[in-house]
Design a protein around this nucleic acid. Structure first.
Lengths: 200, 200
DNA sequence: CCGACACTAGACAGATCTGTCTGGTACCGT
DNA sequence: ACGGTACCAGACAGATCTGTCTAGTGTCGG
């Protein structure tokens, strides 16, 4: 340990500068999401990341695995963002509707282009890594809605979760296609009505 | 009418064999929808269509224009299928819900892969032909829901149409991602509840 | 000081993509 | 019989894609 010089340390975790891996993931995230995984070539990614091509292939092995890593990053980010957004609410009903508020905020930001999993899936063959991560993401979303529906006292939380998933998917797709975040608020309104009816 | 010899005629409209244009469109429709517009190359299309490359370029001019023609064909087909499906119902309420039944049937067929416009849009740059045709298709859908909502006696047909669009988008996306047409029936159920509430 | 390590720069191979061009065939109406 | 039209088969050009390989740089622990 010792360490005479200043900032001597960060013994294990953090390199002094963003690692090639992190810069690659950041560049892939921006470009893949904005333009599609198939449209964006390796060369564009390494150029934006300022990284050598050999580093990409020694780190990820193939473009497919970089795409998987990109989607896994999106999955993790989405979970933390959503859970953090729900912390603002105490009432179970507000927490459930809060999912749509997080989506409304997100879908109003300039670069919003819909669900990254659906987008990648639309241009990827079935059975690949994209489908795997997408399935995990969808299962997590449905589980979240199930728990929120149960906590809010829904009589049939599984049925309500199915309905909420439809609303969520529709709001995301609609906001993307119509370039307008209104769909998320519309979905929120419907969700509120469904919840009220499910807890009579 | 008449027709002495078998297949004697079809005077003007139909050539004795499917034209190169029609075979190209049929091949493009299958391949683009199943695998994505960017994944499928020109060579695969002309091979499946049994058509020379020169015929493709003299007919459509570019791949982009072939993609536009593919989506325009989908748009037209979707309109006729939907309107034909709604003819089965008289009651305005049934007609409105019939949209979701047509979707349920369609999303249960083997090759279903979600909305062709969304899928193409996910891998195409903004401002191109894909966006144009997509916008036309979405405007038509929303208009249809508006008319159905109005005919069914909704107090605020525009607001109800917005909700129905969200449900429709969500059902389509969910059926694609979960490989299961249940989402359309879930959406139908929600739509029925919304319609009931909107016509109290 | 030195060897391991992480990384950079870029040439290269091989495949694949869009789009063009040449040359030839079959059928059409006149 | 003939010119036009529609079409086919495939070579070709030029760009772009993924992935590999060589060679060199800088840094760090021991």
């Amino acid at each position: 340990m010792s360490a005479a010089s200043p900032a001597a340390t960060t013994s294990v975790p953090a390199p002094r500068k963003a690692s090639a891996r992190d810069r690659l993931l950041a560049a892939a995230d921006e470009l893949f999401y904005a333009e599609g995984v198939h449209t964006v070539g390796i060369d564009r990614i390494i150029e934006r990341a300022g990284v050598a091509k050999a580093s990409l292939y020694s780190t990820f092995g193939s473009k497919d695995e970089l795409v998987r890593a990109y989607l896994e990053g999106r999955h993790k980010l989405r979970r933390t963002r959503l859970l953090a957004g729900l912390e603002a609410y105490d009432d179970p009903r507000d927490r459930l509707l809060g999912v749509f508020e997080v989506l409304a905020e997100l879908s109003g930001t300039p670069g919003f282009r819909g669900c990254p999993f659906y987008n990648a899936s639309a241009e990827s063959p079935a059975g690949g890594p994209v489908e795997e991560v997408s399935n995990a993401n969808r299962a997590w979303t449905r589980g979240l809605f199930y728990e929120l529906a149960r906590d809010a006292g829904a009589r049939n939380p599984a049925a309500l979760a199915d309905q909420l998933v439809v609303l969520y998917d529709g709001a995301s797709a609609g906001a993307r296609m119509d370039k307008n975040s209104q769909a998320a608020l519309t979905a929120r309104g419907v969700a509120a009505a469904l919840l009220a009816a499910a807890t009579l």
